[in-house]
């Protein structure tokens, strides 16, 4: 039974919603978000999902990665890193990122991660969702469509991974920060695509913050920071069992997407990939691992 005061509160909220004007403020610059205007025509098509959250000016500053400079790590310019240390060596087929990690994006990520402004979460997740099919066209081949209700999902459906996992943080940091940005992004993606998100890895070694390190420091810092969780294998098998039967018929590889917030030198993602790659020796079905980050430095 709902109490009277509670009723009152609901009613008030409902009234408030009815009466309040439909104007919201962009939380980055606090300016009013105006409805679609003539300038939308020139806008990046991927940004349409952000219209509700940001103002046009802020959307225009997003440095989308428009063309791949490196087919391996998804950088917008040619990448010498990947020539010296190819990603597949670490068991990673490719990385893709949505934006270039410029000053503006650094600012956004800092607001989100260090200041804890969780409103950025939705923006970043939306950017990742809308860019996915565009970016992963070149990573994974399209599968024949297996799910019937095709209206519900966009064309990227046939490119979607089977599982999502994320780069973990240590327990202590999770405690102080209150969230793990990679996990949050992964969960958002999973929710949008209706794909299971599994916490496969754990971070054992409390390393210095990666953002404080130089390149050499980063690699050695992180090399042995991750281990496979004990129940990861069971979780994985249990989730795979739940896949629809039609998918099993066409399943020649298990597509696993590793999510993180930013790819800088790649050492974090490589270290995670090395842990996951162990499975390739154990399973009959190969695990195809690709990583997906919001930004690429």
């Amino acid at each position: 039974m709902v109490s009277l005061p509670q009723w009152g509160e609901w009613m008030e909220k409902a009234y408030g919603r009815l009466l309040q004007p439909r104007v919201s403020a962009c939380f980055v610059c606090n300016n009013k978000i105006s409805g679609p205007s003539s300038s939308t025509t020139t806008m990046e098509p991927r940004a349409s999902r952000l219209m509700q959250l940001l103002c046009l000016k802020c959307i225009a500053t997003i440095p989308w990665i428009q063309a791949l400079g490196c087919p391996s790590c998804g950088r917008s310019i040619r990448c010498t890193d990947c020539m010296r240390h190819p990603l597949p060596k670490d068991g990673l087929s490719a990385n893709r990122s949505v934006v270039q990690y410029d000053e503006q994006m650094k600012q956004w990520l800092a607001e989100y991660k260090f200041r804890g402004d969780i409103r950025y979460e939705r923006v970043m997740a939306n950017m990742m969702i809308s860019s996915y099919s565009l970016l992963f066209e070149s990573v994974w081949t399209r599968r024949s469509r297996v799910r019937r209700p095709r209206l519900l999902l966009d064309a990227g459906d046939s490119l979607l991974p089977d599982l999502i996992t994320y780069v973990p943080t240590s327990e202590a940091r999770l405690r102080t920060r209150g969230f793990n940005q990679a996990e949050q992004l992964a969960l958002e993606l999973g929710r949008a695509w209706k794909i299971p998100v599994l916490p496969l890895l754990a971070r054992v070694q409390e390393s210095e913050k990666q953002s404080m390190q130089s390149r050499g420091g980063r690699a050695s810092n992180i090399a042995h920071a991750f281990v496979m969780k004990e129940q990861a294998r069971n979780d994985l098998i249990a989730t795979l069992r739940d896949l629809p039967v039609e998918r099993w018929k066409t399943l020649n590889e298990v597509r696993l997407l590793l999510v993180d917030d930013v790819y800088t030198t790649g050492s974090t993602i490589r270290a995670c990939a090395r842990e996951i790659a162990v499975w390739n020796k154990k399973f009959r079905i190969p695990v195809a691992l690709a990583s997906y980050t919001w930004a690429r430095a």
Binding site: F27, G116, D117, I118, R119, E121, L174, R175, T176, R177, G178, F179, N180
Partner: peptide, 17 residues
Amino acid sequence: NASSCASCGSKRCLTCT
């Protein structure tokens, strides 16, 4: 802003923006 929070385990941990 309400969000789930790993520090306190609450589903709706409020943050003042």
